[in-house]
Amino acid sequence: MPDEQAWREIAIGGTEINPGSTERVNTGAWRSEMPIIDFSRCTHCMICWVDCPDACFEISDTRLAGIDLDHCKGCGICAAVCPTHCITMVPESSVPVKSSESGA
């Protein structure tokens, strides 16, 4: 674990040298509700993508492909802003999904 490194082993001056490395932090554990996308109604307008605080919407070739549940905190903004109401928030405990899998 990086937080066990001794003083000689870390970057000086507190400079963080691994861009984007907070991705190793599983903020999905914060979640109490999970977004579920009904792709049959999704128009790939990307409003959910642009309004997500946690950059959780996975895009493939300009189309919505899934949700990064390792980082989704379950705020529900996506469900609130979706013009076609194709995203639903459901209680975390009701969906037995491993966090590394897509929420789709």
Binding site: T22, R24, N26, V50, P53, K73, C75, I77
Partner: peptide, 14 residues
């Protein structure tokens, strides 16, 4: 990226 510690629903990262 993601994995930051801002609150759920925070407008700042948006």
């Amino acid at each position: 990226g993601s994995g930051h510690a801002l609150c759920a629903g925070c407008a700042e990262p948006v």
